[in-house]
Simulated scan of single mutants.
Amino acid sequence: MIQDLRRDFSLSAATAGVIALLATYTGSVLVVVEAANAGQLSQSLLSTWIFAVSFGGGVSGLWLSLRYKVPVIGAWSTPSVVLLIFALTQYSFGEAVACYLLLSILVTLLAYTGWLAKLISVLPQSLLSAMIAGVLLSFCTQIFQSLQSVPNIILPVVIGYVIFRRFVPRYAVALALLTGLAFAFPEFSFNGAYEGFHLVSPVMTTPIFSGEALVGLGVPLFLLALTQHATGLHILQNEGFDVSAKQVVGVCGLISVPLSLFGSSGANPAAIIGAICAGSECHEDPSKRYISGVVCGIGYIFIGLFGASIITLFAQLPGQLITSLAGLALFGTLISSLTSSLEAEDTREAAMITFVVTASGMSFFNLGSALWGLLFGILFSMAMSRGNSTVEQT
């Protein structure tokens, strides 16, 4: 295994893993902090929560990347945590943990019995691609929003990326990252961020089973989990990787069951962050892209061991720089997703509806635009299919 890692290691793949790591801990993890504040959780519970989601994502991504030589980025469902920002004002953290526990058990059983693959197969692939493209669009447009707010950092990154893409395409993102850090360095102000780092002492939360919480919180969590797993797998499969729901989701589920007692919403294959490592920007040779999953997984585990005490470090990094780099790294996947979504003429209009609704950022009943975009696209596709069959009968 060590020999394989040495042989397959590349700067571009390692950089993709680092960018995925930075994108998570300068963005998604802050949602956990916000949800913890909404639920008035203690600092020890917040550290435990960050440990649980980080450790679950890290172990699952590391193991799957090494086992199958596929760039699986283990993650947690950000929409599920966003849901808790509102839900923790109605339910206790113990009730949320009970929902997480049952969800992890259910997802694991569905994965290993093959039912999850059947549920995912029902979702039209063109609409999944359109949903992914809608989410990616917001990431890519943030490059130019950041260019407006901090041109002194982002403009050199964009210019550098174009130059590097022309002459050294494999290392374009890595060199753009170094360019951005060089221009952003004068604005860094760590202010003692290195003080007070300590290993987390996980605190287990006793699950509280409530019918009201299982319906009001558990059902939306299941729908979000199904969508998250489907999109994560679709991104890998769309890039040519031969992975199954049983292989990937089953492992994520097994790891998530015990960690759910510490606040993990469930590990899953990352969708958008995972796309950074699955595409050609990571490495032109697909068989060597798994290095990005290894690097990111090790980073997740390391950060998880320090819990909330290390988040202060990531808070000092310029958020616009990370989102811009992520957007640049995702251009290739955006193109392939849009192309895949529009290939089938009979679902082209439904795919465009899915894309537009997802990109709109709308939210109802605490469910994000990605889920609504997929639902609207499916409903439109069903309506058109029924209308065509009616015309044929007459």
Rank of each mutant, 00 (worst) to 15 (best):
S10A: 13
S12A: 15
A16E: 10
G17D: 13
G17Y: 09
G17W: 13
V18F: 14
L21N: 12
L22P: 02
Y25V: 02
T26E: 07
T26Y: 09
L30G: 03
V31N: 08
V33F: 10
V33E: 15
V33L: 14
A35R: 07
A36L: 08
N37T: 12
N37H: 15
A38Y: 12
A38E: 15
A38Q: 15
G39T: 09
Q40D: 15
L41G: 11
L41T: 08
S44G: 14
W49V: 03
A52F: 00
S54D: 13
F55S: 05
G56M: 03
L62Q: 06
L62E: 08
S65F: 04
L66E: 12
R67E: 08
Y68K: 01
K69L: 13
K69G: 11
V70G: 11
V70H: 10
P71H: 06
V72Q: 06
I73C: 07
G74V: 03
G74Q: 05
A75D: 12
P79S: 14
S80C: 03
V82F: 04
V82K: 00
L83H: 02
L83R: 08
A87V: 00
A87Q: 10
A87K: 03
L88H: 03
L88V: 01
S92H: 01
F93N: 06
G94R: 04
G94A: 15
E95V: 01
A96P: 06
A96G: 01
C99F: 01
C99W: 08
Y100A: 09
L101R: 02
L101Y: 14
L102R: 00
L102M: 13
L103A: 13
S104Q: 05
L106R: 00
L109T: 11
T113S: 15
G114S: 06
W115H: 10
W115P: 02
L116F: 11
K118C: 08
K118Q: 15
L119K: 03
L119I: 11
I120W: 08
I120T: 11
I120F: 07
S121P: 06
V122H: 14
V122L: 15
L128T: 03
L128P: 00
L128A: 05
S129V: 04
I132L: 09
A133E: 07
V135K: 01
L137H: 03
S138P: 00
S138C: 09
T141V: 14
Q145M: 11
S146T: 00
P151H: 01
P151S: 02
P151Q: 00
I154N: 00
L155D: 09
P156M: 01
